[in-house]
Design a protein around this nucleic acid. Structure first.
Lengths: 194, 194
DNA sequence: CCCCATAAACTAATGTTATTAGTTATAATA
DNA sequence: TATTATAACTAATAACATTAGTTTATGGGG
């Protein structure tokens, strides 16, 4: 089916994700990827749409993996337990696959349908997990933004070494999520007028 | 004092920050900066230590500006009002100076003393603002991580267009901060044993 | 007032990168 | 087996960072 077979898009994406995790996102260049695959850079264009295209594919791949991780963690749980499990899974994913996680947020193309769908699945999962708190539609959407901010902010700062102090990060995260949940319960029904 | 005077380090940093805000961090190249200043790229090396050095200086500059903004906002306030004002100021800074804010987190050198000091000032400010809740040392440090995660996560996701829904972002932020504070009050003294 | 040393800005050159155009060769198919 | 589709190739270009070495303006010392 293909002359000198060996490469296809999936292989490229997976190899690029490894590069990202091992060397950091800066180092995932077409030159480095080609070298890793034993091929010349221009050959990659048979499978991907240049560096931008590769980044978009990486983002989709990363979001799919992240979704799978979060979904598995929350499966069968609800309420606080589900939120905690999902949150820990999110941050653990960012820890284990730092490069791939980073690509998730660095998607250049907005109108890429596969990218949008991967993002929406995660959004729906978070909405679902927050469903048991019966917040009402608008408050729930604000809470989704809140939880996403918390998880991404924590993962991002931890990765960038922003947490200097010698303090267990897992405890920080667990407390952060628990505190936010407690706040949600306490503020339920408030109109937030200042 | 200097032949063909005109450029110095501060000028470069300020021009680079403008570039970052206008074009995005990707576009702050030595070539673009030199063009903006009417000079050839190698000339920049008389004032900065290459691209990495420029990025470090940008991070310091950004952290200083961010500190000034947060400090001004929280001045004279305490408790919930101070946290809200400081949080809004943080996110507003990231909105108005997206490129400069981004450099803040992208510092390559860790042992740069000016960079460390700029970061510590912000840390101390947050600790100070959280002081009125009397959490005790350890809980307070966890809370600092929490608040930083919230603010950075929100700013980062908003900038990257992660908030798709047509929902007022300022309300989301205000609620997020308020919810976190409410959670802190509610959890005060809890031992977080699960 | 002039000289001269300092250092800013320059030109030239190298190596790395992404990307395009056009060629070669392989593997599936007819 | 011959043909065709296409993966991988070479060659070439343009943008970038960086280094080495050169020119030149400027301000302080004579």
């Amino acid at each position: 089916m293909s002359p000198r077979a060996g490469l296809d898009t999936q292989t490229l994406v997976i190899a690029a994700a490894e590069l990202a995790d091992e060397q950091g996102m800066e180092e995932v260049t077409l030159a480095a990827l080609a070298a890793k695959l034993g091929v010349r850079s221009p050959s990659l264009y048979n499978h991907i749409n240049g560096l931008q295209g590769l980044r978009t594919l990486l983002a989709v791949h990363g979001l799919e993996q992240l979704y799978a991780t979060m979904s598995l963690a929350a499966d069968g749980l609800n309420g606080d337990e589900a939120v905690q499990a999902m949150g820990q899974a999110y941050v653990d994913f960012a820890r284990k696959r730092p490069g791939l996680y980073e690509t998730t947020l660095r998607a250049p193309e907005q109108e890429h349908t596969a990218l949008e769908r991967a993002g929406e699945r995660i959004l729906k999962l978070i909405i679902d997990v927050l469903g048991s708190y019966n917040l009402g539609e608008e408050a729930e959407l604000h809470a989704v933004r809140g939880l996403r901010s918390i998880l991404h902010g924590f993962a991002s700062l931890e990765h960038k070494g922003g947490f200097g102090m010698p303090l267990d990060a897992n405890i920080s995260l667990s407390r952060l999520i628990q505190t936010y949940i407690a706040g949600i319960e306490k503020m339920k029904g408030a109109d937030y007028t200042e």
